Structure formats: C-alpha cells, structure tokens
Computed example of a mutant assay.
Amino acid sequence: MSQGSREYFFGIIRAMERRGEFAVPQTLRRALNDGKLEYVVVKGEKKTGMETGHKYRRFDISRGTLP
C-alpha cells in the first residue's frame, strides 16, 4: 500500500481500531462518506540546515487506487 491511497487510509483506521481507538476512525469514515475529508501530506524542505519552504500534496481517496 502506498501513502495517499484509499487502501493505506483504511489500513491506518484498522490499526487505530486494533489499538482500541474508535471515535477518531468513526469520525474519519463519516467525513469521507460525506465528502468532507481532505487527505494531504505537507513536508518541509531543508537545504544546508535551513528551512526553504514546503511541499503540499492532496490525495484523492474517493475510490480505490490499487488493482
């Protein structure tokens, strides 16, 4: 599974539930079903120890992405 895929997202939710966490996974599922979930990754960029900006990437997990 690759980060940003629907399968990865649900893998994270299953892991949370195995640890006994239920409120957040339920909220995330509801948000996805209601079209109110935005799945993004934000990474800082560093060059020679200095912050030089960031990268932002939005993922569409509205449908399966793996075969």
Rank of each mutant, 00 (worst) to 15 (best):
M1S: 05
S2C: 09
S2E: 14
S2I: 12
S2A: 13
Q3R: 08
Q3F: 09
S5F: 05
S5Q: 05
S5Y: 05
S5D: 03
R6T: 05
R6C: 04
E7M: 08
E7A: 05
Y8K: 09
F9W: 00
F9Y: 00
F10E: 03
F10T: 02
G11R: 03
G11I: 01
G11D: 08
I12N: 03
I12G: 02
I12F: 08
I12V: 10
I13F: 06
I13T: 06
I13L: 15
I13C: 14
I13Q: 07
R14V: 06
R14I: 06
A15T: 01
A15L: 00
A15F: 00
A15P: 01
E17R: 14
E17S: 08
E17M: 04
R18W: 10
R18S: 10
R19I: 04
G20V: 03
E21M: 13
F22T: 15
F22P: 00
A23I: 08
A23L: 12
A23N: 13
A23K: 10
V24Q: 02
V24C: 02
V24K: 02
P25L: 07
Q26R: 13
Q26F: 07
T27Y: 05
T27Q: 11
T27C: 02
L28H: 05
L28W: 02
L28F: 12
L28A: 06
R29H: 05
R29M: 04
R29E: 02
R30C: 03
R30H: 10
R30G: 09
A31C: 05
A31R: 05
N33T: 08
N33F: 10
N33A: 14
N33C: 06
D34W: 03
G35F: 07
K36C: 03
K36D: 03
K36R: 12
K36S: 03
K36F: 04
L37H: 07
L37C: 08
L37E: 06
L37I: 10
L37K: 04
E38F: 12
E38V: 15
E38D: 12
E38M: 14
E38K: 15
Y39R: 03
V41C: 06
V42P: 01
V42H: 07
K43L: 10
K43M: 10
G44H: 11
G44L: 13
E45Y: 06
E45S: 11
K46D: 09
K46L: 13
K46I: 12
K46Q: 11
K47E: 15
K47N: 13
T48Q: 15
G49R: 11
M50N: 11
E51H: 13
E51I: 14
T52D: 10
T52W: 07
T52F: 11
T52E: 11
H54N: 11
H54D: 09
H54C: 11
H54P: 00
Y56P: 01
R57T: 11
R57I: 10
R58N: 11
F59H: 13
F59W: 09
F59M: 07
D60W: 03
I61T: 14
S62I: 01
S62F: 01
S62D: 05
R63E: 11
R63H: 09
G64R: 09
G64C: 03
G64L: 12
T65D: 10
T65Y: 01
T65F: 00
L66S: 10
L66I: 10
P67W: 02
P67E: 06
P67I: 03
P67F: 06
P67T: 06
